[in-house]
């Protein structure tokens, strides 16, 4: 456990000293600032825009950070040859991968916490009360980001950083449309398209299951049962994806 912790700590240290992290955080701040401007311009209550944009920013900036740091994880280690000095020590490859994952997970947690604080402060500025309900959207977003991170690990365990980025981004996009895929499948007579859509629906993660933003922003009732099972679903999916990544990485030549 000590070795995993050391790798996680070192990975976290690396990312918070990385410029990409700060530029994405800056990007998130711009999105939030934009939400303030829009909030003041629209006829609806500005607080809704603040919440909607704020949560959207946490999700998008978080996803970009997860993809960037995730695909860079192995690529940078191989490119800078730092991986040789680590993997030549008495450490299992799974320990290395899990340590890296936890370190980057911690980075994403910090990013989510910082951005949430900003959204909370903004919200407090407009309506002087703590918008605790936002947590119902932020917590599932966090688990979605951890799943996206696991996917970026999986793809980078066997492909180039560019391809890994494209694959992971595709998972993010398709993951939010799998329900639509199923609906499309039901509405078509094309058997091949039907089968493909159904396969994608069951095989790819249903990231919409982790989207509680509409309920939170529009003050709709939230099903705690649905929230609970969505998080369990995300955790289970993440574990499976990481296990596959470890399986592939264990067999890879570190040339």
């Amino acid at each position: 456990m000590g070795k995993i912790f050391s790798i996680a700590q070192n990975t976290f240290r690396e990312t918070i000293r990385d410029r990409v992290f700060y530029s994405l955080l800056f990007f998130a701040l711009i999105l939030i600032a934009l939400s303030m401007i829009l909030g003041n311009l629209t006829l609806t209550k500005p607080i809704k825009i603040i919440h909607d944009f704020g949560l959207g920013s946490i999700s998008i900036a978080g996803t970009l950070i997860a993809i960037f740091v995730g695909i860079g994880m192995l690529y940078k280690e191989m490119d800078k040859r730092t991986i040789y000095t680590i993997l030549s020590k008495p450490i299992h490859r799974w320990q290395f991968l899990i340590g890296k994952y936890l370190g980057l997970g911690l980075t994403i947690s910090v990013e989510v916490v910082v951005m949430s604080l900003i959204v909370f402060l903004l919200s407090f500025y407009y309506v002087p009360e703590i918008p605790l309900k936002l947590f119902f959207a932020i917590v599932p977003i966090f688990f979605e980001l951890m799943l996206i991170l696991a996917f970026s690990f999986l793809f980078s365990s066997f492909s180039s950083s560019f391809l890994s980025g494209m694959f992971t981004l595709s998972i993010f996009v398709i993951g939010h449309f799998t329900s639509d895929l199923k609906m499309l499948a039901q509405g078509t007579d094309n058997v091949i398209f039907q089968k493909l859509s159904i396969f994608l629906f069951y095989f790819l993660p249903n990231l919409e299951a982790l989207n509680f933003k509409p309920e939170v922003v529009h003050n709709l009732a939230i099903s705690y049962e649905k929230l609970f099972f969505s998080i369990i679903y995300a955790i289970s999916y993440t574990i499976v994806v990481l296990l596959i990544a470890i399986f592939i990485f264990n067999r890879r030549d570190i040339k």
């Binding site: 240290r13 040859r81 040789y84 030549s88 008495p90 299992h92």
Partner: peptide
């Protein structure tokens, strides 16, 4: 992997984490 506890390895042109 325990065998590596007895091995010290210096790669060719070693690279380290430059931020450390």
């Amino acid at each position: 992997v325990k065998t590596r506890a007895n091995i010290g390895y210096l790669p060719e042109n070693p690279y380290f984490y430059s931020y450390l």
